[in-house]
Structure formats: structure tokens, C-alpha cells
């Protein structure tokens, strides 16, 4: 394989990987703080993309404002999801919570189809659509935005969790909720924060991604699943791990296309992501069993 082609696959993998990473980070933050797998995570991405398009195209809001508004609305939806659905279900088991978030995702998707219709939409790119040629491989400006924003956010999240009071409080909740409670950390406030952050991160992914990929009301399901795999590869431990998981997944998928032989081909690339997930889960089985908190 020529090196320029390899680089092209790498670009493609990083672009997709960044999307998966942002969704995966949302999964990770919520899971770490609350032990809930939020299956509505993909819907935040959809909301981000859809809202930014319709604010811009139908309501004439300038694009940067539309993007910021979309992220805020998604964060509010995240907060509402926690306050109205999750917090009300106090004694719910793992399964019940999973179903609540699945119910929420179906609900949000249905509302989106009703309000915005079922056609794909595409907000304009932030800065032009003409590809740049880098060492023989093409990359679109919007893809650079996407990868760049993902990396910047990763750095910010890392700093936030390790060097701010609030970040440390969240981390404390993730490590031991009851102990965190004893030192005066309000677990509920932390859970709310986690949902707001996850909503905003998903929407950031959606607004930056949709000029590149277009977006439909139903796209959250697939993206959510990939983000979930990314978070699993990262072990649901830290945002940085989830980003690495996402980028790995993106690159593995692109390479599956590149190899294009038998099971390693575009036809089976969705399965490959999940085989990677299974392999990682099983290899880590012993370690994970020790981590799992009693529900």
C-alpha cells in the first residue's frame, strides 16, 4: 500500500474516530459518576446536528450562534433526562435504568422526526469545503475542525478532572460514591453535572460532524452504538481512555476497508468493532469483575 493511501485511511479513521470519541467520552463520564449506561447518548449528537441546521437554515441564526445554542439546548436535554427520568427512578436496577435511557432515546428520536421530518440535512461547513492535500492525502477543513476540537476537548477534560475542584469531586464520585458523600460531595449534583457534560459533548460532536456527514433524525442510534464501543474499549475509566478507544475504533474500521480480504472487509467492519470490544472485555474479565460495584 502506498504511503499516501495509508495516510488517507488514517485521516478517515481519525475523522470517524473523533466522532466516536466524543460520544464515548459522554458515555464514560455518565457511567463513571452514576454507573448508568446512557443509551440516549447518540441522540445528543443528533440533536446537536439537527438543531444547528434548523436554527441556521430556518430561523436565520448566524452559524456560530446556532452551534452554541444547539450545544446549550442539548445540555439542557441532558439535565432534563437526569432530573425527570433518572432521578425519579430511585430504586431501579441496572436493567431498568438501561431501559429508561433506551425509552428516552426512542422518545427524543420520535420528537425529532415529528418536528424536523425524516430527510437528511447538512449544515454548512465552518470554513469552506475545498480539501487540502497533505503529503498526497486529502483532508477537508471540517475534518480538521473535528479532529482539532476533539483533541482540545480531551486536553481540557483532562485538566478539568485533575486540576479543578469540581473535576476532582466528580472523580471522587466515580471512585467511591459513599466515601465521596462522607466528605461532603453531593452525589446528585455530580450526576446532574455528568449528564449536562455528556449532553454538551455529544452535541459538540453533532454540530462539528454534521457538515461533514449530514444528519438524520435516526442517526443517533448507530453513532451511539459506536461511541459505546469506544467507551468500552477505553474501559469506561477516563475521558482520555475513551478518546483513545474512539480513535482506535475509527482507525480499525478504516483499516478493515483497506485490507479488504474475507472477514476483514467493509462488509464486516461493524462486526469487527464489536469483536474488538468482546476481546477486550474478555481479556480484562478478571480485572473488571473486581471493579464492578454491587448494584
Amino acid at each position: 500500500m502506498a504511503s499516501d493511501q495509508l495516510l488517507q485511511y488514517l485521516f478517515s479513521g481519525l475523522t470517524h474516530g473523533s466522532i466516536y470519541a466524543l460520544v464515548g467520552v459522554g458515555f464514560t463520564i455518565i457511567y463513571a459518576v452514576t454507573s448508568i449506561i446512557n443509551f440516549a447518548q447518540g441522540e445528543f449528537v443528533m440533536l446537536g446536528g439537527m438543531l444547528s441546521f434548523f436554527l441556521f437554515a430556518s430561523m436565520g441564526v448566524p452559524l456560530p450562534m446556532a452551534v452554541i445554542l444547539a450545544i446549550i439546548v442539548a445540555a439542557v436535554v441532558g439535565a432534563l433526562l437526569y432530573l425527570l427520568a433518572i432521578r425519579s427512578a430511585r430504586q431501579a436496577s441496572v436493567v431498568s435504568l438501561i431501559i429508561i435511557t433506551i425509552g428516552a432515546s426512542i422518545f427524543i428520536r420520535g420528537i425529532a422526526a415529528e418536528v424536523w421530518g425524516v430527510d437528511a440535512v447538512r449544515p454548512p461547513a465552518f470554513t469552506g469545503t475545498t480539501s487540502w492535500l497533505v503529503a498526497g492525502a486529502y483532508i477537508q477543513p471540517q475534518a480538521v475542525w473535528l479532529i482539532g476540537i476533539t483533541l482540545v476537548l480531551t486536553l481540557l477534560l483532562h485538566l478539568f478532572f485533575n486540576f479543578t475542584m469540581m473535576g476532582k469531586a466528580l472523580k471522587a464520585c466515580a471512585i467511591n460514591r459513599s466515601a465521596a458523600g462522607m466528605v461532603g460531595i453531593d452525589a446528585r449534583a455530580m450526576a446532574l453535572t455528568a449528564f449536562v457534560m455528556a449532553g454538551a459533548l455529544g452535541a459538540i460532536g453533532g454540530t462539528v460532524m454534521s457538515p461533514l456527514t449530514s444528519i438524520t433524525y435516526g442517526m443517533g442510534a448507530m453513532i451511539g452504538l459506536k461511541g459505546f464501543v469506544a467507551a468500552s474499549i477505553g474501559g469506561f475509566k477516563s475521558p482520555v481512555a475513551a478518546v483513545i478507544g474512539g480513535l482506535t475504533l475509527g482507525i480499525v474500521e478504516a483499516m478493515a476497508v483497506a485490507i479488504g480480504w474475507g472477514p476483514f472487509s467493509s462488509a464486516y467492519k461493524d462486526a469487527i468493532a464489536l469483536i474488538v470490544l468482546l476481546a477486550i472485555l474478555l481479556l480484562r474479565a478478571g480485572q473488571l469483575a473486581a471493579q464492578e460495584r454491587p448494584s
Binding site: 427520568a85 425519579s88 427512578a89 431501579a92 431498568s96 435504568l97 431501559i99 429508561i100 433506551i102 425509552g103 428516552a104 432515546s105 426512542i106 422518545f107 427524543i108 428520536r109 420520535g110 420528537i111 422526526a113 415529528e114
Partner: peptide, 16 residues
């Protein structure tokens, strides 16, 4: 067409 919206809502309410 509102059926999936209501389905999602009922799912959440029953579980909550």
C-alpha cells in the same frame, strides 16, 4: 406517527 414518541414515554414511565 406519534406512536414511537408515546412508546418511548410509556417505557420510561413504567420503569420509573
Amino acid at each position: 406517527e406519534l406512536d414511537i414518541v408515546i412508546y418511548g414515554l410509556i417505557l420510561m414511565l413504567v420503569m420509573i
